[in-house]
Design a protein around this nucleic acid. Structure first.
Lengths: 212, 212
DNA sequence: GTCTATAGTCTGATAGAC
DNA sequence: GTCTATCAGACTATAGAC
């Protein structure tokens, strides 16, 4: 019963934490670019600077690395939407949400691409979350937005598609980064320009109509 | 010199055309879901109903299948933007463009995901097209949009980011299809709702300000 | 804890019978 | 043209020395 392989969850040494982080960082790099099936342990080993068997000392399998990444990602991914305050000023709340999402794309583009890859592949590992936790959260916030519209504080929109629009527009700058930069050319700050553009776009969309 | 393997480009029989199409269809299915590296010839063979060696009778390599798909895709992918008419009515032209793009997402979602996969992977096979043909076309159409804005026919926007927004919003419904449907639940027609939503969004964004 | 060596499987591609 | 059989290399994962 010498079950010595898996590292103890508690009381990890400094080196263990450092190696775990190195592996997860390298795995994020490779998974986000090639997807789960396209990624190889050889690549992750090379990027992390560790040997291939050593990877499998810290994680029982390739799948386990991917799961670990997805879990930590999803934890923080929905925070901006959760923070949408029903008691706040409607337009301010929505614009804040948009900019928090855009900041996530700017600061964590690989995480965004990891998520995009998972969805493109049909979301085999997170379908439950999509139809469960995510749908519940979205339905709840959509109700908040609808209430704002009905009260005449913002224009009437389809709340679900408003949220889809925010996701699409903000994540695009991370997921299609190479295309954005290729088309813009040098001497551009995509995220700064996007921030202005999206503020303008949603301000005009949501301005309540004069016939209040 | 019995170079019998590659099928002659001209005068292909009916069966040859049918098999080629079956292979490309299967390859599109697999590549669009798993990306180039994640896709396997075994999968493509199974989906197409042909044997693995038979695949390689019609195409010299896995790479050749992928290239063939990308080329036919890119040919039609930019047509809607090319059709943007500088002499048309500005808002009508832009809304038509949006709906043509949305129709492409609805009718060719796998092609959209194939393109998304290629960009996510860093566009290794189409970087030249992005910085060349695509950038040229976008710069040209951005100038048209800027001229419309300067003439007061539509509101002032950042033309490049306006186009990015259109791409992001329309392609989102193909690329993130499973997420959209998971969140909406049944009894929804995502593309019909998206059509209305995007019309509203861009109509409000582009309405020229009163202070003409 | 980390390594070398390797087991066992899957991969893209080829050879050769029919 | 299409198949079975098969190659060499890459793949995930394990064994065992240190």
């Amino acid at each position: 019963m010498n079950d010595h392989h898996p590292p103890a969850k508690k009381r990890a040494t400094r080196i263990q934490r450092k190696n775990r982080q190195a592996i997860l960082g390298a795995a994020l790099e490779v998974f986000s670019q090639h997807g789960f099936r396209g990624a190889t342990l050889d690549q992750i080993a090379e990027v992390s600077g560790l040997s291939k068997p050593n990877l499998l000392y810290y994680f029982p399998s390739k799948e386990a690395m991917h799961t670990a990444l997805l879990n930590t990602l999803l934890d923080t991914w929905l925070d901006p939407l959760r923070a949408l305050d029903p008691d706040g000023e409607p337009l301010t709340e929505i614009l804040s949400y948009i900019h928090r999402k855009l900041d996530l794309s700017r600061d964590y583009p690989r995480e965004s691409r990891l998520f995009a890859n998972e969805i493109l592949q049909g979301a085999p590992r997170i379908m439950d979350l999509l139809t469960g936790e995510l749908k519940t959260l979205v339905d709840e916030k959509a109700a908040v937005i609808r209430a704002w519209s009905d009260a005449g504080k913002i224009a009437q929109t389809h709340p679900h598609h408003l949220l889809f629009s925010i996701w699409a527009l903000t994540q695009h700058y991370a997921d299609f980064d190479v295309q954005v930069r290729a088309v813009l050319g040098p001497d551009h700050d995509p995220y700064a320009e996007a921030g202005d553009h999206l503020t303008q776009l949603f301000t005009r969309l949501l301005a309540p109509s004069k016939q209040a």
